[in-house]
């Protein structure tokens, strides 16, 4: 089930969209980059950790700021077009 629980500003949306895109890019890069390319591989691993952390921090920060409704098994989703936040539950 999907329920509208809030909305962020376009600036806040841009921040998470950039992180979302970067995370996807890193994940797909990880499929082709091998450990023998040491320098780039290490950069990739570090970046994945860093981006993942920033990604989670954004959700934590926004959740605290807007006090969105939550559910034990649920997770939030954002619609990049409308900046709307949905609570998705099984």
């Amino acid at each position: 089930m999907k329920k509208l629980v809030g909305q962020v500003t376009p600036v806040e949306r841009d921040e998470i969209q950039r992180l979302f895109e970067r995370r996807n890019g890193l994940n797909e890069l990880a499929k082709i980059l091998t450990a023998d390319n040491t320098e780039l591989y290490e950069r990739l691993v570090a970046d994945m950790g860093d981006t993942g952390m920033k990604f989670q921090q954004w959700w934590d920060r926004m959740a605290a700021q807007y006090d969105w409704e939550s559910a034990p098994d649920g997770n939030w989703e954002i619609n990049f077009e409308t900046c709307e936040i949905y609570l998705v539950t099984p």
Partner: peptide
């Protein structure tokens, strides 16, 4: 593959 690698590098 090259694009992804180079954009990142």
């Amino acid at each position: 593959d090259y694009l992804k690698t180079e954009m990142f590098r």
